[in-house]
Design a binder for these strands. Structure first.
Lengths: 213, 213, 213, 213
DNA sequence: GATGAATGAGTTTTCATTCAT
DNA sequence: AATGAATGAAAACTCATTCAT
C-alpha cells in the first residue's frame, strides 16, 4: 500500500491511455489523409490502429469526433503560426515579418500534410460541427488579414484598395498554396520556401510591371 | 408501322424524354446545392422531381452520374467563359479584355450558384470520376492562366515573376471569389461586378504602394 | 391509359401494402409471443416474415414501433370488450351483464393469447412509449371499474367498501386470470368460460360463508 | 504460517469480502429498482458501488447472477412471511391470523420496495433462471393459498367455491396490491395497513351486499 | 485482490440500386 | 415507360465479459 507505488501505477496508466489516444489519432489521420473523410470508415481506423471496435469508442465518440479533434489541433497550430506584424521603432522590416509568418504557416502545413489535404479538399459538408469550426477559423483568419491590411495602410505600406476583397484574395492564394503543397509527393522536395516567398511577392506586388496606376 | 406517323411519335417521345431528363437534372441541382453531395440522397432528388425511384434510374446511371453530368455542364460553361487575350494591332486594351473574362466567369458562376457551391466546397472526395474531372479542369485552367502570363510577359504587360506560382495564386483568388459569391444569399445583390474588378485589380497590382522592389 | 385500370393497379398495390404490413405484424406477434420482447430481435421477425432487413424498416420504425402497434390493437379490443352496465328499467340483470363483459374480455384474450402473454408478463420497462400506453390503459380500466362500483353502490348492488381498494383487487384478479389463460397450451381447452364465471363469483361474493358482517 | 494469526487475518478478510458483496448487492438493488432490469447496465452498478469493473466479476458471475441473488433474498423473506393458519383449540381467530399474514407480507414488501418493483413489473423475460425461480415461487405461493382454502373449507370458514380459481384470484389481488405499494413515493406514507385490511376484507366478503346467492 | 483498458459479438439502421408489375 | 416495393451490403454503435498489470 505504498503511496508512491500507486502514484506510479496511476501515472503509467494515464500515460498509456494518452499514448493509445495518440495512436488512434495517428491511425485516423492516416486513414483520412489516404481515403478522404467520407471514404474513411471506422473500420479503416481500427485496422490501422490495430485495435478492436469497442476500444475506439472508449476513446472517441465516433468518426466525426476524431476528425474534429484532429482539425482542432491543426487549426490551433495554424492560428499560432500567424502573429501580428510589429511596426514599432526597432521592429524588423515589415516584409521580413510577413515572410516569417509565411514560413511558419508553411512549416505547419508541411508537418500536417495529410490532414491539411482533407481540410483543404473536403472543406465543407462533412459534419455540422466540423463545418462550423472550419467556418469560424476561416472567419478569424479573414478578420486577421483585414486588420493587418488596415494597419498596413496606416503606416503607408499598403496602398489604397478594397480591404474586404484584398483579404479574400490573400486567403485564396494561401489556400491554393496549401492545396498545392498537399498534393506534392512526400519525396518531392521542391523548393517550397522559394515558392512561399513567390506567393508573398505576388500578393505584395501583383502581376504587372510598374506603370503607375 | 406507317413511317411518317412513327416519325412524329418518335420526335414527341424524344422531346418528352429530354424534358424529363432536364427536370431530373434541375431537381438534382437544387438538392445538391442545398444539402451538398453526400447529404443529398436519391430520395431528395426524387421528391423534388416528382418522379418514382425506378424512373430515375431509367434516365441516369445513379447519383454520381447525375452529378457528373451537372458538373460537365458547369465546367463547359466556365471553359467557354475563358478566351485568350488578343494582342494584335487594333485589339482592345489588355486590361479591358481581362475584365471581360472576369465578367463572363462571374456571370457563369452567378447563373450556377448552387452547383458552383458544391463544386467549390466539396471539391474532392465525392467519387473517383468526379475527382478526375475536376482535377483535369483545374489543370486546364491553370495551364490557360500560365499561357496568358507568358504571353503577357512577352508583350511587356506582365513583370518578371514565377509564372507557376503566379498562376496558382490567381486560381486561388478566383476560387475564393467563387466561394464568396456562392455564400451570398440569393437576394443579396451586392455590387458583384465592382468586387470582380477589385479582384482583378488585386491580381494586377498587388497590395503595396509602388515603391520599386 | 384507361383510368379504371390505373385505379385497379393502385387498389391492388395498396392492398398488397396492407397485407405485407399485416404479415410483418403477424411475424412480430409470433416472435414476441415466443421469445418475449427483449429476447426478440428484428432478425427474428425478418426470418419469420421472410423479408429483407430493409423491407422491415419500410413499414415500421423499429422493433418498439411494431410492438406498440400490436399493443394498441390489443388495448383497443380490450377497451371495446368493456361496456358499462345498464341499470334502467327492462335492462338485463346486473350479474348477467357482468358475465357478458367477462365473456368478451375472455374472448379477446383468447384471440390474442401470444400478445397478451407479452403484455401481462413483461408489463413494464420495455420502452418509454409502450410503458406510457400500458399505464394509461390500466389507469382507464381502473377508473372504469371504480365508476361501476360507485354506480353499483347507488343501486344497492354493491355493499359499502373501499372503492379504491376494491377496484384494485378486481383488476388484480383480471390480470391474474389473463396470465393464467395465456399460460395454457393451445390445445388445453379447459373450461375457460366456467373459470371466468368463477372469477366473477369470487369478486362478487368473496371467500367466506355468509355470516353477516 | 502461524495458525492463530492466519485465523485472525482470514476472519478479517472474510468479513471484508462479505461487506464488499453486500455493498455491491445494495448498489445493484438501487440500480435495478430505479431503471429496471434491462435498462440497468453493469456500469450503473459499478458507479453506485464505487468499484471497478473487474471487481464486480470477482464477486458475482454477472448481471443476472446479482439479480438472482437479490431475488432469492426477497422470495425467502416473502416465504417466511407466510405461515399456515392454526385451527387448534385456543388458536387466535382465523381472521386475525390472516390479517397478521397480510401484515407480514406488507412489511416485507415495504422493506424491499425497489426489488419488489422489479419483480412485480418485469416479472418474466429477464433470464431463463430468474424466470424459473419466479415461476416456482408463485407456484408455491399458489399451492399454499390452495391448502389454506381447503383447510378453511374443512373448518367451515370458507364457503364452497372453485379452490383453484379462488387461489388465483387471491394471488392476483396480492400482486396488484404489491404493485400499488411499489408505485408509491417513498415519502407517501398513506395508510398502508388500512389498505391491506381492505384487501383482506375484499377477498373475504366480495363486492355484493349479502343477499344469499 | 483490485483495477480498468480492451475486446468483439451482436444489433440496429441506412440507402443506393434492382426488378416484377 | 413508369412505378415503388423489395433488397441487402455496408456502417455505426453498445455493453457484458475478460485479462494483463
Amino acid at each position: 500500500m505504498a503511496e508512491p507505488d500507486v502514484d506510479g501505477r496511476t501515472r503509467r496508466a494515464t500515460e498509456q491511455r494518452e499514448s493509445r489516444r495518440a495512436a488512434i489519432l495517428d491511425a485516423a489521420l492516416e486513414a483520412f489523409g489516404t481515403r478522404g473523410y467520407h471514404q474513411t470508415h471506422v473500420s479503416d481506423i481500427l485496422s490501422l490502429a490495430g485495435i478492436a471496435r469497442g476500444t475506439f469508442y472508449l476513446y472517441f465518440d465516433g468518426k466525426s469526433a476524431v476528425f474534429l479533434e484532429l482539425l482542432e489541433g491543426l487549426l490551433a497550430e495554424l492560428g499560432d503560426s500567424i502573429v501580428g506584424v510589429e511596426t514599432g521603432p526597432g521592429s524588423p522590416p515589415v516584409e521580413a515579418q510577413l515572410a516569417d509568418t509565411v514560413r511558419r504557416i508553411l512549416a505547419t502545413v508541411s508537418n500536417n500534410r495529410l490532414l491539411t489535404a482533407v481540410v483543404v479538399r473536403e472543406a465543407v459538408g462533412l459534419d455540422a460541427e466540423v463545418d462550423a469550426r472550419l467556418s469560424a477559423f476561416y472567419g478569424r483568419l479573414l478578420a486577421y488579414i483585414r486588420e493587418a491590411l488596415i494597419e498596413g495602410q496606416r503606416i503607408g505600406f499598403v496602398r489604397a484598395l478594397d480591404v474586404e476583397v484584398a483579404a479574400m484574395c490573400i486567403l485564396g492564394t494561401i489556400k491554393q498554396f496549401m492545396e498545392h503543397l498537399v498534393r506534392l509527393d512526400d519525396d518531392a522536395t521542391v523548393d517550397v520556401r522559394r515558392m512561399a516567398l513567390a506567393v508573398l511577392d505576388f500578393n505584395l506586388r501583383g502581376l504587372t510591371t510598374h506603370q503607375p496606376a
